[in-house]
Design a protein around this nucleic acid. Structure first.
Length: 114
DNA sequence: GCAATGACGCTCT
DNA sequence: CAGAGCGCCATTG
């Protein structure tokens, strides 16, 4: 499990460029990684992440803005705690994507700000 | 090599 | 707003 990490490496690279205090959805990461529609691959890549990874995986949430990991899970609590520590606001166990959605240059797609 | 599973997303009910 | 169904691809048994 080391070769063919191109796809995974690409995903990690995208996640690494997510600014602090901002969050991105799996679909977004997949899209910017060159894998449109393959949000599952992103989740799979994160699941295989090493504890020593310098990848801010906690900044990745699902399309609803909620943490995909089991709420009672240790990782889920850590993710939320870390996000809140960065200033991310939660609303009913969901991140306010309208306010914290990562917006890389060029992804305007005609948004009026919300 | 086939079958089942999984850190998801979108649409319909 | 919540729940169920279908699709897409990679990893594992």
């Amino acid at each position: 499990m080391k070769e063919r990490e191109t796809r995974r490496g690409r995903i990690y690279a995208v996640i690494r460029r997510i600014p602090r205090g901002r969050v991105a959805t799996y679909g977004q990461v997949a899209l910017f990684a060159g894998l449109p529609g393959q949000a599952r691959l992103v989740g799979y890549a994160l699941a295989a992440l090493d504890v020593d990874s310098d990848v801010p995986w906690h900044r990745v949430v699902n399309a609803r803005g909620a943490i995909s990991l089991p709420p009672q899970g240790h990782s889920a609590r850590m993710q939320r705690a870390r996000l809140e520590a960065e200033g991310v606001v939660f609303e009913s166990d969901r991140v306010v994507l309208a306010r914290h959605r990562w917006r890389p240059r060029g992804s305007s797609r005609g948004i009026s700000g919300r």
